[in-house]
């Protein structure tokens, strides 16, 4: 049996090394697939003329569903584009930012408004394995794996959950190794598909509104019918992943990465602002992160302020837990644009 075991182990190890090694060889296959790919293409078409500085909104579905660039521009006088992707957690947001810069979509002089969320890898497991989101499937690198495992390892989860998390991350990493390279194939497919096929595939309504993909103006039937209960529910939802977050975890996995990305942007002459959305049902940890960012003289737009922005805190604006309907999205964009103008005015002073 030994010769067999030795041979098959050697072959499998060699193949795995070849597979991982192929990352280096096939790096030009960088363009992602799925929703983000469609945004890339929309952006490519939209970025004319090139000399106008762009304002990018980068974030999760909260950004994707809530920020209407056309409305924002009409108030703030900018030229903006919504790069929100459903299910996008922190580390892939940063990868998106870096890859967009590397490929020339984001240029020096542009501005990025980065949504702050507490989406963390161990939280993702509990919230139904968001790893299947379109972005992660193709861009889950060794560094992502290390980062995410680091978060899990330092998280308050028990050892069983950690083991499960490690296993899922490990499998996900192996799985995405090749998908990463296959991304180009998907792009090609999608570009060649007719409109009818796209609608048949139930793609969103296209990204002709500069990446904005709102929900309709209705509400989910199971949504609560008063604002207090809604926010109480949202807080519970957020708490699941973050209730025991220690200062140490915050420092390692939020403060330091935010500092790093801020420096990275600064070095490339990209203006970076952080956005705290109004729909998270914010908790203590998020407030601490916001406080830290302000303290470090970062640009922070805080929309989670029921006193200043009461118009954003009504259950009637919600489509489902965590997302506004179209009416809510319009109000959110207006509030964002006004806060943005205030911040710009402060900076000028």
């Amino acid at each position: 049996m030994k010769p067999f075991l030795l041979k098959i182990s050697a072959v499998l190890i060699a193949f795995s090394l070849l597979l991982i090694g192929s990352d280096w060889v096939l790096k030009w296959h960088h363009e992602p697939s799925g929703k983000l790919a469609r945004k890339y293409r929309a952006l490519k078409m939209d970025r004319v003329p090139e000399e106008i500085p762009f304002t990018f909104f980068l974030g999760s579905s909260v950004t994707n569903r809530h920020i209407n660039p056309l409305l924002f521009d009409s108030i703030a006088g900018t030229h903006s584009f919504n790069l929100g992707v459903n299910g996008l957690a922190y580390s892939p947001k940063i990868t998106v930012l870096k890859s967009l810069f590397a490929e020339g979509f984001i240029k020096r002089g542009d501005e990025v408004i980065l949504e702050i969320g507490l989406s963390m890898p161990f939280e993702d497991f509990e919230l139904n394995k968001k790893f299947n989101n379109n972005f992660y499937r193709y861009f889950y690198t060794g560094t992502n794996f290390q980062d995410d495992w680091g978060v899990v390892a330092h998280s308050p989860l028990d050892w069983q959950a950690k083991t499960q998390a490690f296993w899922e991350l490990f499998c996900f990493y192996l799985n995405s190794r090749c998908k990463y390279h296959h991304a180009i194939e998907n792009i090609w497919k999608e570009q060649n598909q007719s409109r009818k096929v796209k609608s048949a595939c139930q793609y969103p309504k296209a990204y002709q509104h500069r990446g904005f993909s709102p929900y309709c103006n209705s509400r989910k039937a199971n949504l609560v019918n008063d604002t207090t209960t809604l926010y109480a529910e949202l807080r519970k939802y957020v708490k699941r992943g973050t209730k025991l977050m220690t200062q140490d975890s915050l420092r390692i996995y939020y403060y330091m990465p935010y500092e790093r990305i801020s420096q990275w942007c600064c070095q490339r002459n990209i203006k970076l602002s952080f956005l705290i959305p109004s729909t998270h049902g914010i908790n203590q940890s998020e407030l601490e992160i916001a406080g830290f960012l302000v303290h470090q003289n970062h640009q922070v737009i805080n929309l989670f302020d029921p006193n200043e922005l009461p118009q954003l805190f009504s259950y009637k604006l919600y489509y489902n837990f965590g997302h506004y309907n179209y009416q809510g999205a319009q109000l959110y964009t207006k509030a964002l644009a006004q806060e943005y103008l205030k911040l710009t005015a402060q900076n000028k002073k």
């Binding site: 193949f15 070849l18 597979l19 799985n175 090749c178």
Partner: peptide, 17 residues
């Protein structure tokens, strides 16, 4: 044959789900 094996291995790992 190892080239064939590797191609198959690659295709499997890429698509296993």
């Amino acid at each position: 044959r190892y080239v064939f094996y590797f191609v198959m291995f690659y295709a499997i790992v890429a698509n296993i789900d």
